[in-house]
């Protein structure tokens, strides 16, 4: 399979792209990512700025016209949406195949695999 060179996305980039399915400025992205990840991913300003710069360079996001001259507003690009969807499918496959394998061999790493709780108890 000829995979997009951007895959797999890092957790940070995945959440940033997901957050930017709606237009937002830098700090709003940071807050949205924290919210989407249930507080798991807390981006710092320097890392956020670098991530925006990087995603702009890769054309996965674009800058919109902003009324506020001090804050640029960004949104995911068509190319970004494709990459996000491809990574989503990649993870869906990983989840599906993990459940299959775990189902087949209950002795999987000797740990109990709970369908409801997912991998959290493994």
């Amino acid at each position: 399979m000829n995979r997009d060179k951007n895959l797999p996305l890092t957790e940070t980039v995945y959440y940033v792209l997901l957050a930017l399915t709606e237009p937002a400025h830098g700090y709003a992205i940071m807050q949205k990512v924290e919210e989407l990840s249930g507080g798991q991913v807390r981006l710092a300003a320097g890392t956020m700025y670098g991530a925006i710069e990087n995603l702009m360079k890769k054309k996965l996001i674009t800058a919109l016209k902003s009324d506020d001259p001090r804050r640029k507003v960004y949104v995911i690009s068509e190319q970004g949406k494709e990459v996000l969807q491809a990574d989503y499918k990649r993870m869906l496959h990983m989840i599906a195949i993990t459940e299959q394998v775990a189902e087949r061999g209950r002795a999987w790493t000797g740990a109990e695999f709970d369908q409801e709780e997912g991998l959290e108890h493994v």
Partner: peptide, 9 residues
């Protein structure tokens, strides 16, 4: 923009 992002956070 850079300084504003830091100030905001």
């Amino acid at each position: 923009e850079y300084r504003t992002l830091f100030a905001d956070s």
